[in-house]
């Protein structure tokens, strides 16, 4: 939000962090890279546990038992046709020992039953508005097919984008790129996402402050000792990640946190896991 401030990480450039070697051999340096943890936030609320369901059921039944009497006389004024319709559909009171006040048996819970809407007054628009709401299923086709490239799976979980690029090591990781001259973390990561996944994605960078820092040490590289990667957090609102031809993306996947643990390299996963959402 506060983009007027300059965050500390953005002042670092590729050649800033040269490291002097003790033995006098030519100094190697770390490559500075920017990465993106691109995620799709949960779209629906999480599935309730059996205990949670039972708890809310108990509380709502208790609420119906203890709540005030529904003031039907306010909505269905006395002496109107509407009142007739309302009283006609009300369930019969307990015959044994009713404790009745305002047509309500105070010994039992209150379930308010509304009269059905009269068909004559129904217009096309009102019929559409008052039609019974049928919620969509919690699972989608992508869930059944287990299509890990689809954004329409695991609707109650956060999905994270990981990619596989052809390079020295063919391993899954969050997308990252080298910071070019004149770029900062934000500009290089937006440039990279367009380069890797196309221009169709509607993406929101949460902050200019990195959410994760990862230090990758190379075993055999003439120029660099390793790479220091600063990951920014971002959200995808709509659009699709479509791997571009010249980007070198071999494969990509949208995965939950648990699924990531089996895809990512063990050492990488251990560093990354803390920055990911549980839900």
């Amino acid at each position: 939000m506060f983009f007027l401030r300059r965050s500390l990480a953005t002042s670092a450039t590729a050649d800033a962090l040269a490291i002097e070697s003790d033995s006098g051999s030519p100094a190697k340096e770390f490559k500075i890279m920017s990465g993106v943890i691109l995620s799709r936030p949960p779209i629906i609320t999480p599935e309730q546990t059996a205990f949670s369901k039972a708890y809310y059921h108990y509380q709502s039944e208790l609420y119906k038992r203890m709540s005030w009497t529904f003031p039907y006389w306010f909505y269905y004024p006395k002496g109107t046709l509407a009142e007739n319709e309302y009283t006609r559909v009300q369930p019969k009171l307990n015959e044994k020992d009713p404790d009745v006040l305002f047509n309500r048996d105070r010994n039992s819970k209150q379930d308010v039953v509304f009269p059905p809407r009269s068909v004559q007054r129904e217009t096309e628009e009102s019929a559409r508005i008052y039609a019974k709401i049928v919620p969509n299923p919690r699972t989608t086709i992508a869930d059944e097919e287990n299509n890990i490239r689809s954004l329409e799976r695991k609707l109650d979980r956060t999905l994270y984008l990981i990619v596989k690029r052809d390079g020295e090591s063919l391993e899954w990781s969050f997308p990252a790129t080298t910071i070019e001259s004149g770029e900062n973390l934000e500009s290089s990561s937006t440039r990279m996402l367009a380069q890797y996944g196309g221009e169709d994605m509607n993406i929101f960078l949460v902050s200019g402050t990195p959410a994760l820092y990862y230090k990758d040490v190379y075993e055999s590289d003439g120029k660099y000792e390793g790479a220091k990667i600063f990951y920014l957090k971002s959200r995808i609102f709509n659009g699709l990640f479509k791997p571009q031809k010249e980007s070198g993306i071999v494969d990509y996947a949208w995965l939950t946190k648990e699924e990531l643990s089996s895809y990512l390299d063990k050492q990488y996963w251990r560093k990354v896991a803390g920055a990911l959402s549980k839900q």
Binding site: S7, P42, A211, K233
Partner: peptide, 19 residues
């Protein structure tokens, strides 16, 4: 639920600054 799962971590990062 939305605040807990999505907003709170994002807000913390967006408002945060070093030192």
């Amino acid at each position: 639920t939305h605040w807990e799962t999505t907003l709170a971590p994002d807000l913390m990062l967006a408002n945060y600054s070093h030192n």
